[in-house]
């Protein structure tokens, strides 16, 4: 069961809108301030990747309810160039060494579950979930 709302990412201001959406949902679900900040940081990171590398895409926030366990899922989708070597971008130090922020390993650390699918030429789909403890 999930309820979804989305933000289209085209320019940098949309990153803020996506963060705001994520924070509202996180608050609603009862996440504490630290987890709210982690979720919004993860959203920022994913939205920035769309803005910088794909040009256009979407960030959707889902409320999850899995056997009584509540959670928030970020779904980042774009039809950009895709990622050639996923293993490489998931390596620590690959994106951070250029000062590009926390990178995908950072998103993975901030959230509880992390899934990525990407195909060169057809885009990237990332789903990252945080469960309410």
């Amino acid at each position: 069961m999930s309820i979804q709302s989305c933000v289209t990412i085209i320019n940098e201001w949309d990153i803020v809108a996506a963060r705001q959406l994520g924070r509202n949902v996180a608050k609603e679900l009862g996440f504490g301030t630290v987890d709210q900040a982690r979720i919004t940081t993860a959203i920022s990171e994913l939205a920035r990747n769309i803005y910088l590398y794909a040009g256009k895409g979407q960030i959707c926030i889902d409320k999850l309810n899995d056997a009584g366990k509540a959670g928030l899922r970020i779904h980042a989708a774009d039809n950009g160039p895709g990622i050639n070597d996923i293993r490489q971008v998931m390596e620590d130090g690959f994106s951070t060494s250029g000062g590009l922020g926390a990178g995908l390993p950072g998103v993975k650390r901030l959230m509880d579950d992390f899934h990525i699918e990407s195909e060169t030429g057809s885009g990237t789909q990332i789903k990252a979930t945080k469960w309410l403890r």
């Binding site: 301030t33 900040a37 940081t41 620590d92 951070t96 922020g101 926390a102 650390r109 901030l110």
Partner: peptide, 18 residues
């Protein structure tokens, strides 16, 4: 302060893993 510190926390954990 919290928002700023999140970045430091991540950098620290990355450093540990490296």
């Amino acid at each position: 302060l919290l928002e700023v510190m999140i970045g430091y926390g991540l950098a620290y954990r990355e450093h540990q893993s490296l």
